[in-house]
């Protein structure tokens, strides 16, 4: 299934993931107030950021699908949104597991959490919509519009942490990084590892999607072209 370039990418991703795990569990010191539970942050934050990247990717693919009507962009949008939903589901789960001992609750109706949940629901809706559309081009175009409009919620999630009374800690501001150097390096390693993982996963998922479409078309025609 994997081509040689993908194999190299997978190995680099695996190595980077091991470095990120070493950083999260060994290199980074325990946080003064929260203790070891803060280590969840080294997987929670990269997943959240790469989830945003995935939704931006789905939005971008949607724009290009509407412009060019090429099936590749439609498949790219589905692949990116699917991985984005996976990552954001894990963000909600890890966030709840962090909130329980720190805030004393699994969930709170905080503006950032609510806007994030809405984002998750939008892209789950997009995947359901796109799955139901099948070969219908009109519905596929409608799903692409949904992916583009849905992305509007991403800046709202980002801004709600800063300008509304959100409970989630703000780590990065325009002036400083609110982390000790060893923690910042661990976070950076996590970001690189999960970015590479996203790209590896996206390539594999896109290839499967394109092949499925091609095989379905061939099976429907009953003949193989080219």
């Amino acid at each position: 299934m994997l081509r040689s370039r993908d194999t190299v990418l997978a190995w680099i991703t695996g190595a980077m993931m091991l470095i990120a795990l070493y950083g999260a569990f060994v290199f980074a010191p325990p946080e003064r107030v929260m203790g070891d539970i803060q280590r969840i942050f080294y997987v929670h934050l990269p997943l959240a950021w790469i989830g945003f990247v995935a939704f931006a990717h789905a939005c971008w693919a949607g724009i290009w699908y509407l412009r060019t009507a090429r099936r590749e962009w439609d498949e790219a949008g589905v692949a990116a949104a699917e991985i984005g939903v996976l990552f954001s589901t894990l963000v909600i789960v890890t966030g709840s597991l962090w909130a329980r001992p720190v805030w004393g609750t699994w969930w709170t109706w905080d503006p950032q959490l609510v806007t994030y949940l809405i984002l998750w629901l939008i892209y789950v809706g997009y995947l359901v919509l796109r799955g139901a559309a099948g070969e219908d081009v009109r519905r596929a175009r409608f799903a692409a519009v949904f992916a583009i409009v849905g992305f509007v919620d991403v800046p709202l999630v980002w801004l709600s942490a800063r300008y509304l009374r959100a409970l989630s800690p703000v780590i990065f501001t325009s002036r400083s990084v609110g982390l000790a150097p060893s923690m910042a390096w661990t976070l950076a390693a996590g970001l690189v590892a999960w970015s590479l993982f996203y790209w590896t996963l996206f390539r594999a998922r896109l290839r499967i999607g394109l092949l499925e479409t091609e095989v379905a078309a061939l099976a429907g025609d009953g003949e193989v072209h080219g």
Binding site: D36, I37, R39, V93, R205, I208, E212
Partner: peptide, 28 residues
């Protein structure tokens, strides 16, 4: 305990997705 479950949830989620992709690839 929460730290363990958080990392376990992430990797179980990732492996379930990879398993689903492998199944689709095999069907293909």
């Amino acid at each position: 305990t929460y730290l363990f479950w958080a990392f376990a949830a992430v990797w179980v989620g990732i492996f379930l997705y990879l398993y689903a992709l492998t199944r689709r690839s095999q069907a293909l």
